[in-house]
Design a protein around this nucleic acid. Structure first.
Ligand SMILES: [Mn+2]
Ligand SMILES: [Mn+2]
Ligand SMILES: [Zn+2]
Ligand SMILES: [Zn+2]
Lengths: 145, 145
DNA sequence: CAGGTAAATGAGAATCTTTTGCATTTCGCT
DNA sequence: AGCGAAATGCAAAAGATTCTCATTTACCTG
């Protein structure tokens, strides 16, 4: 079953080592789409794989360079990673419970390109995060009010 | 001259202490609009004020709570602060030289509100950063090519 | 399939940014 | 001037990430 992961790694130009295979599978199989290095490390511990946290950081950074994952800075302090499944999207986060939703708005995407051009920048990337309170957390707040 | 700063602090509900006055003046007088805690600390050293880095962090956080400054997470790792001068704006950053430009796009602002509503979120904030290569850095690259 | 080699790893130390604990100082108000 | 609460400086601590280096592993060759 790790054959598929092995192929993906090779295709990305990475040696198919045990830690890399395991980490890739965790990213693919986790029900959370956005995982911190610590999240990945904890998941590894549960598979009883003896992988160090330093390797988790190294591998995630390599995955990013290889285009296998995206790194996001949702909250100051630590990065989260998610598999690159080909479709760009932005994020909307609940500041109460941490829920993450994803969206893509073509109007915004276009405006960004126009703005970059106006300022003479060659746009390489962008990061848009909407923060708010999710429907559930709004209900919860209403309840105990 | 620090009278004005003293007033601003009092109005914001903060005791007008020497460190707070100095830090506010640095934010007001710096030619850089976006300063890290370390930047502020270095500027303080040059005024030969004996302020600890811990106080810099504490004061900047208080200024943020008081609405005097905004905190941004431009690059993973550290926050930058800028005076709140009343107008919200987003940022476009050069990944080569660190230059920061500011913009405001009403179309994007509106779309964000609509998206939050679509997902049922009560939007509290948002952060949009366009990354790219500024005109000067594009020229520089062209030159040595 | 053994052997060699460069690349990858684990453990812990190191780094970097930010926060915290605590003794001491300062501010704002009599 | 004097009091009490709030603020500060310093050093230690914390949290996230990177680095060092001895050891192991993946992959190529014969
Ligand atoms: Mn996502
Ligand atoms: Mn700005
Ligand atoms: Zn929520
Ligand atoms: Zn530039």
């Amino acid at each position: 079953m790790s054959e598929i992961s092995t192929q993906e790694l090779k295709k990305a130009g990475l040696k198919a080592t045990l830690p890399r295979i395991k980490i890739l599978e965790i990213l693919e199989q986790s029900e959370m789409r956005h995982l911190s290095a610590e999240d990945v490390y904890k998941a590894l511990l549960e598979t009883s794989e003896d992988v160090g946290i330093a390797t988790v950081y190294r591998v995630l950074t390599q995955f990013e360079s290889a285009g296998l994952v995206f790194r996001h800075n949702f909250e100051g302090g630590h990065s989260v990673f998610e598999l690159n499944e080909g479709h760009h999207h932005d994020h909307i986060l609940c500041i109460k419970c941490g829920r993450v939703d994803e969206f893509l708005d073509e109007t915004i995407e276009q405006r960004q390109k126009i703005i970059a051009r106006e300022y003479g920048y060659a746009m390489t990337d962008h990061s848009l995060i909407i923060q708010g309170i999710c429907p559930e957390c709004q209900e919860r707040a209403k309840g105990k009010e």
